[in-house]
C-alpha cells in the first residue's frame, strides 16, 4: 500500500492505495465521489473523465498513485459556489443534453476542457472533441447544442426543442 495525497475539488485528501488501484476506483470507493462513472473497461466510453492538473483524463487509465500531488477536479466540484449549476451544467439542462445521466459527468468534464482550450468551438470541433465520450441516449444532438450554447454562441438556428 502506498500513501497518496492530492487536492480534489480544492480540498486536500489522503489515502492508502494498492499499486493497481485506478484513480477512478480511488475516487469512487475510497472517497465516495461516485459521480465519476465506470462504463467500460477499455478506456473508450469517457464516463470517468476528470481533470488532473487542468487536463482531461480518463480516470480509469490512471493509477491513483500517479495522481499523488496532483490537483484533481471531478463533477462534484463543478457547480457554482452557491450550489447553482455552472454555465455548462445549466446549458445541458436548458437544452436537454442528458437523459439517463450516466455519461453526463464525463460529458460535462470533457466540455469544460474543450471550452477552456477553444472558447468558441464550431459544431465540427465539438463533435470531434467528444470522440472519446459515448452517449447512448441523446444521439448527441442536444449535447453538441448545449456545449455550443455554453460557449455563448447563438444556437437558436439549430433545430428546435
Amino acid at each position: 500500500m502506498t500513501k497518496v495525497t492530492m487536492t480534489i475539488n480544492g480540498k486536500s485528501v489522503s489515502g492508502e492505495v494498492e499499486g493497481r488501484t485506478l484513480l477512478s476506483s480511488f475516487l469512487r470507493e475510497d472517497l465516495h465521489l461516485t459521480g465519476t462513472h465506470i462504463g467500460c473497461d477499455t478506456s473508450q466510453c469517457g464516463a470517468c473523465v476528470v481533470h488532473v492538473d487542468g487536463k482531461p483524463v480518463k480516470s480509469c487509465t490512471m493509477f491513483a498513485a500517479e495522481a499523488d500531488g496532483a490537483d484533481v477536479a471531478t463533477i462534484e466540484g463543478q457547480a457554482n459556489e452557491d450550489g447553482s449549476l455552472n454555465v455548462i451544467q445549466a446549458a445541458f439542462q436548458e437544452h436537454h443534453g442528458l437523459q439517463c445521466g450516466f455519461c453526463t459527468p464525463g460529458m460535462v468534464m470533457s466540455a469544460a476542457a474543450l471550452l477552456k482550450d477553444n472558447p468558441k468551438p464550431s459544431e465540427a470541433e465539438v463533435r470531434e472533441y467528444l470522440e472519446g465520450n459515448i452517449c447512448r441516449c441523446t444521439g448527441y444532438h442536444n449535447i453538441v447544442k448545449a456545449i455550443m450554447a455554453a460557449s455563448g454562441q447563438d444556437v437558436s438556428a439549430i433545430a428546435a426543442e
Binding site: G35, T74, L85, Q93, L98, G101
Partner: peptide, 15 residues
C-alpha cells in the same frame, strides 16, 4: 426542463 437533471449534472445521482 427536467428536474432530475440537477442530480445527474452534479454527480449526485444514485445508480
Amino acid at each position: 426542463v427536467r428536474r432530475e437533471d440537477v442530480r445527474f449534472l452534479t454527480g449526485t445521482g444514485q445508480y
